[in-house]
């Protein structure tokens, strides 16, 4: 069992938890993810690592309710535990592999959307700890869904917030902020790292391609084991099939087939929806031998 040391609601349907998992905390790096499973009957839920503390042996996760298992996870409190917590999975962010002196010469722009702010945070923090200031754009639907604002402010160079409905700071999509910074204000960036909903990453990539700005995205596709066993997470990058769990989760955003990736995310929409309905409304369906 993996004990929860802290549980906090960040925004509607978005939760943060610190979990005791010494093996993961001891070996993880920004960009990697974990898989958590609430109990015997829960799903294996992949979540990008949001933060970690090697001395305390804890890993911070942030998740949004999307189905039955995440709905049940949201009810856990400090003192409760996950049955399973495994990782770190996937490749660490490319940034972690570059020599620090090289990184210090670079201007880096992060673009975070919604719950994607969580996986952006450890990368910005890691850079800050290594003496690199990165600019960060955070987009949220509305002010109440904005997460980790103070935390991000503490580690980012410049922080630009935008909301779809204009309820906080400015109105508009993250792409408009990128345009503003690069085209209007003349900021020059060497690399952009975009993490958020698939549709956001797609449009960020379309824009940065136009701006000739290399862009890395972090994909969170459907997966089961997270070690390359099931192949559910396959994604086409530069015409080649890759497994996001072992080859990724980060890829060159200009080469990802987003349309296919978005279709693949729909795969279990009805099944996941059913699990969620069962969680909220009780046992409303029965399946047996195709005669449901």
């Amino acid at each position: 069992m993996y004990e929860i040391l802290k549980a906090q609601m960040l925004a509607e349907n978005i939760y943060l938890m610190d979990v005791k998992a010494p093996r993961v905390a001891g070996s993880c790096l920004p960009g990697q993810f974990v898989i958590v499973k609430i109990d015997e009957k829960g799903e294996r839920v992949p979540l990008t690592i949001c933060d970690y503390d090697r001395t305390e042996g804890t890993v911070t996760i942030v998740f949004q309710i999307v189905g039955g298992s995440t709905a049940r996870m949201s009810k856990l409190k400090a003192g409760d535990a996950f049955r399973d917590f495994v990782g770190p999975l996937g490749q660490p962010s490319e940034l972690c592999k570059e020599p620090i002196d090289e990184l210090k010469k670079k201007k880096i722009l992060f673009v975070a959307g919604g719950v994607g702010t969580a996986p952006v945070y450890p990368q910005v923090k890691w850079l800050k700890e290594n003496g690199v200031d990165a600019d960060v754009i955070v987009g949220a639907k509305t002010q109440s869904l904005l997460i980790l604002e103070d935390e991000m402010k503490a580690v980012a160079g410049n922080l630009y917030i935008t909301t779809d409905d204009g309820s906080y700071v400015r109105k508009g999509m993250v792409t408009e902020v990128i345009k503003d910074l690069v085209k209007e204000q003349g900021h020059k960036y060497d690399v952009c790292i975009a993490i958020g909903p698939m549709i956001m990453m797609k449009f960020v990539c379309l824009l940065t391609k136009e701006l000739d700005l290399p862009t890395v995205v972090s994909l969170n596709p459907i997966m089961v084991d997270g070690t390359g066993m099931c192949g559910a997470c396959r994604v086409t990058v530069d015409g080649e099939v890759k497994f996001a769990c072992v080859d990724g989760p980060e890829f060159d955003g200009h080469k990802v087939d987003f349309d296919q990736a978005m279709k693949r995310q729909q795969l279990y929409k009805t099944e996941e929806g059913r699990a969620y309905l069962k969680e909220t409304e009780g046992d409303t369906h029965k399946g047996n031998c195709g005669n449901a």
Partner: peptide, 24 residues
Amino acid sequence: SANEYLTRSNLMKAFDDDYDTPIR
């Protein structure tokens, strides 16, 4: 992959309605 289909059904017990993991 057969691995995915079987893992969902066997390990994750997707055939049993009481378990959260979906299978198509």
